[in-house]
């Protein structure tokens, strides 16, 4: 027994957490997949197998199409804007500016807030009767309109702006750390070679930050799929269902509309989407390392 323990101490130490992960992560993924093949309503029931009917229903629910499209629209815009502006802010802060930590704190500060708070702040800011619109009107520009929250076509921008406001700090911090890690001699060599600063960034420094880009994309993608509280606090899916995200749809089906089967099916589709993005990424990543 003693010798067994000595030889397998690492396995023994890891086994409780492995068991927990096996049950609560993979176990419940399997359980959800099982529920999605039943006709469960408020509670999971396994006596009523319906095969893939829930998936058929899901893809014939217009609200799901809105939510699913929104995820890519919101995700794409959020990713693009956050990475571009986060990198730009990091580059500006990296210019050895005065009061650097002051600016760093300003950009980082929203990160300290929960998405619910962010959602409420932006709900107020974007409210046509008390937010930015009123402020601009008071400045004299009475034709100014900012109706993102009430216009189904532009409500997605409200989500993007609020999520960017919250996520920008993290992205900036990661890029700044990456920029600071670049050997100063590279900059000196470029100065002697006569390469203009923007070209050094485009051709040398930004390619060197490739690993940071990967980290940022993964972190932001996860927050896109998880995005739930922001929508609930900012728009609550509205107007109508125009700012629904799959997570909101899933929650609604499971706990408000007592349609657990359909909710489980949407959860499985979401997982599939994440895997479709993640598996190629992991494949490339592990192949590059090897």
């Amino acid at each position: 027994m003693r010798r067994f323990l000595q030889r397998h101490v690492s396995q023994v130490a890891l086994s409780p957490s492995l068991a927990l992960i096996a049950i609560f992560l993979y176990g419940f993924i399997a359980y959800t997949a099982a529920v999605s093949t039943t006709n469960s309503k408020a509670f999971p029931r396994f006596d009523n197998f319906v095969g893939l009917e829930q998936y058929w229903r899901l893809f014939h629910t217009p609200r799901w199409h809105v939510a699913f499209t929104n995820m890519f629209l919101f995700g794409g815009l959020f990713l693009l804007i956050t990475i571009l502006l986060g990198l730009l802010i990091a580059i500006l802060i990296d210019q050895r500016i005065r009061a650097e930590s002051f600016f760093r704190s300003i950009v980082m500060y929203p990160m300290a807030m929960s998405f619910v708070v962010t959602g409420i702040i932006w709900q107020w800011l974007l409210n046509p009767t008390l937010g930015i619109e009123v402020m601009v009107h008071q400045l004299g520009f009475t034709s100014f309109r900012l109706d993102w929250l009430t216009n189904p076509d532009t409500v997605i921008w409200a989500l993007v702006v609020a999520a960017f406001w919250q996520g920008c700090g993290l992205v900036m911090a990661l890029f700044l750390a990456g920029l600071r890690g670049i050997d100063e001699d590279i900059w000196k060599a470029a100065a002697v070679d006569g390469i203009p600063a923007w070209r050094v960034y485009v051709f040398i420094v930004i390619p060197m930050l490739a690993p940071v880009f990967l980290t940022v994309v993964v972190l932001l993608s996860l927050s896109i799929v998880r995005a739930f509280d922001l929508v609930v606090a900012l728009t609550n899916g509205g107007p109508g269902v125009s700012s629904d995200l799959p997570s909101v749809f899933m929650f609604d089906m499971a706990f408000r509309r007592t349609n657990l089967g359909l909710s489980a099916a949407s959860a499985v589709v979401m997982l599939g989407t994440v895997l479709a993005i993640l598996i190629p990424y992991l494949y490339v990543e592990t192949r590059e390392r090897a």
Binding site: D183, D185, K188, A189, A190, V192, F203, I204, M208
Partner: peptide, 14 residues
């Protein structure tokens, strides 16, 4: 002028 650095300072992505 041209300069050679201790850390080589080669552009690693090229």
């Amino acid at each position: 002028i041209a300069m050679v650095f201790q850390s080589y300072a080669l552009y690693p992505t090229m």
